[in-house]
């Protein structure tokens, strides 16, 4: 709750505009899952993209692919490290985005024992 989702979207949109040539790529979710582990996204965001102490929730992200890639390249100056093309290509990030899109919707809060 440190910053509104709105602010993130704006920021991401701004960053996306600066990243030329991020066309809509066809993402491979299986490869994305592998890369999500290999490139340590899970360490902060959780294996199920649930977020936590060290990273924001990614499951059910509202970011479109281009905005997602742009954010990862040039994140808000908080705890999220920038991942440059040298480390992860746009295609690889598109794969990660596709994987995140497969993460299941959470159950309704009232249907589970959450105090």
């Amino acid at each position: 709750m440190r910053r509104s989702l709105c602010a993130v979207l704006l920021l991401a949109a701004g960053a996306a505009a600066q990243t030329k040539g991020t066309a809509n790529l066809t993402g491979n979710a299986d490869n994305g899952k592998r890369l999500f582990l290999k490139n340590a996204c899970y360490q902060c965001h959780g294996l199920a993209g649930q977020g936590g102490l060290a990273g924001a929730r990614l499951a059910q992200t509202k970011l479109a692919q281009a905005a997602f890639v742009a954010y990862v390249r040039n994140p808000a100056p908080g705890g999220m490290p920038p991942y440059r093309a040298k480390v992860m290509s746009d295609q690889e990030l598109a794969d990660v985005w596709a994987f995140i899109k497969t993460l299941p919707e959470p159950p309704a809060v009232a249907s589970v024992p959450i105090p």
Partner: peptide, 14 residues
């Protein structure tokens, strides 16, 4: 509470 429901059925357990 909503954040707690995310990854509710995940394994490893959230």
């Amino acid at each position: 509470r909503e954040a707690a429901a995310v990854a509710w059925d995940a394994s490893p357990i959230s």
